[in-house]
Design a protein around this nucleic acid. Structure first.
Lengths: 196, 196
DNA sequence: ACCTCATGTGAATACGTATTTACATAATAG
DNA sequence: CTATTATGTAAATACGTATTCACATGAGGT
């Protein structure tokens, strides 16, 4: 039998296992059986620590929210130049996706938007905050003259996020068949050319 | 019993029904039962016309490929100015998504990328062609001086596509809770500001 | 009119998944 | 040291989905 650990520890293990499954096989394959395999425990033991699949989904969303959004907010709150902040946010977002391919799959999965309404609303609010954060940085950049005048801050933020999102999508779709880092660097360079 | 129709007609009906289900409920809910309901026929009758789910998926992909990619290619092949072409492609893409919300859900679903490898490869090639088409138009725009010099055509194309994709995503995620048309117009205006 | 074959369907079949149950075991409080 | 309680698991249950089967029906050729 498996070594016994506290529910607090097991919950973290299960969330990480779930994220690993999503990264490797997609949300469709996020079954209790697959999580149990990945976490190296029995299916029944998962129910010992979570009431069911919905609660696991919520815990995964909670983990992602903390990892992604608060990171961006911390960067945005610093005292550096807006374009530097944007660059850091951009590349740390890309790095996070490389490390956890399950994150974009989970956040943008239609399973979640359509099957878990509560979760979808929570995620929606978080994404909205993320957009606001970046919009603020861009607005500051325009005000300080680092970005060209006349740009719409929100639309420019959406363009930047779309760039990130589309890159992540092509990358996960292609089964990581291209190097995301150089691709990201070229995109960032071009973005600088676009906004200045 | 249902009126009898030829397999050719039924196949089209089934593909449309499938796309309708995906638009309304996501790829996860694309079950034979749901397709049968939406198409108003029995489940068994679907097997009369398709050998199974995989063949239906392939037929849906074929329909989408024809609708999206060849449309863009036709526009790109015209003799108008590059920016006009881009604008037409952009807005007709948005219009297509509004009419068939199932299209982006299907194309970017991880169910398909991970569960239907053949299909995923086909779609990947089509998306690649789409990117190439737009890259070509942008390169022409730069050459003619309509877009500013120094832009990277491919990266600018990816940025534009990301913009479209991210808008579609937020729209389907939010359950069509905002007006996509005015949002698209603001994004396009800002894109013009970015590239000129 | 009648025959044939494409088209249509309800009912089985087989399998996968979420969840519960009954029981096992080890940590820990007393 | 023992009793209680938290943790772990195999097996049973219930349900949904893909697919097949045996039979029904009607359109079109003869």
């Amino acid at each position: 039998m498996l070594e016994k650990k506290s529910t607090r520890v097991r919950k973290e293990e299960i969330v990480q296992a779930a994220l690993e499954v999503v990264g490797r096989k997609g949300v469709r394959a996020l079954t209790i059986s697959a999580i149990a395999d990945s976490a190296g425990m029995s299916e029944a033991n998962i129910y010992r620590h979570f009431s069911g699949k919905d609660e696991i989904f919520a815990a995964v969303a909670e983990f992602i929210g903390t990892a992604v959004v608060s990171n961006a907010a911390a960067i945005a709150g610093g005292s550096r130049k807006p374009l530097d902040k944007l660059e850091t946010i951009f590349f740390s977002h890309i790095a996070l996706i490389m490390e956890h391919p399950g994150i974009p799959r989970f956040v943008f999965s239609d399973d979640i938007h359509l099957g878990q309404r509560n979760l979808a609303d929570t995620l929606s609010v978080r994404i909205g905050n993320y957009i606001e954060t970046i919009t603020g940085v861009i607005a500051a950049g325009i005000a300080e003259g680092e970005l060209k005048a006349g740009l719409l801050p929100r639309e420019t933020a959406l363009t930047l996020l779309g760039m990130i999102q589309f890159t992540a999508l092509r990358w996960t779709m292609s089964n990581s068949s291209f190097e995301i880092q150089p691709e990201a660097e070229k995109l960032w360079l071009n973005f600088l050319h676009l906004v200045r």
